[in-house]
Amino acid sequence: MHDKKNHINLDYLELMAGNDPQVRLTLLELLLSDLRTGLPQMRALFEEKKWTALQQAAHKMKSTLDYSGNQAMQQANLSILNYSGDQQDPQEIDLSLTQLEKLSSSVLIELEEAMIKVNF
């Protein structure tokens, strides 16, 4: 009924898809797409010190990560959300962003596997 691997937990995605394979596939596609484009975008905003935009991007990523079920990524993103507001802590953001990027590679692989499974 659901994938329980090392880096992803699709319980919430499954719940929201409600046994509808098409919705499940679309959600997986969107999740992959958001992760592939969202994280480099956040890195670029960090490099440009665009804190408000970075906070907005982290807010959007928060919803995305709910579907991935990766708690470490959720936590790292929450940290970026907190530290990119009025009182920025670039060091902390950099650390969390790096952690997000590292974790995302394994998550992406597992999501792609899940996609293949759906397509079969």
Partner: peptide, 12 residues
């Protein structure tokens, strides 16, 4: 604004 949330709410 979040596409996945849009889809999920609509579908639900």
């Amino acid at each position: 604004d979040h596409k996945m949330n849009q889809l999920v709410i609509q579908r639900t």
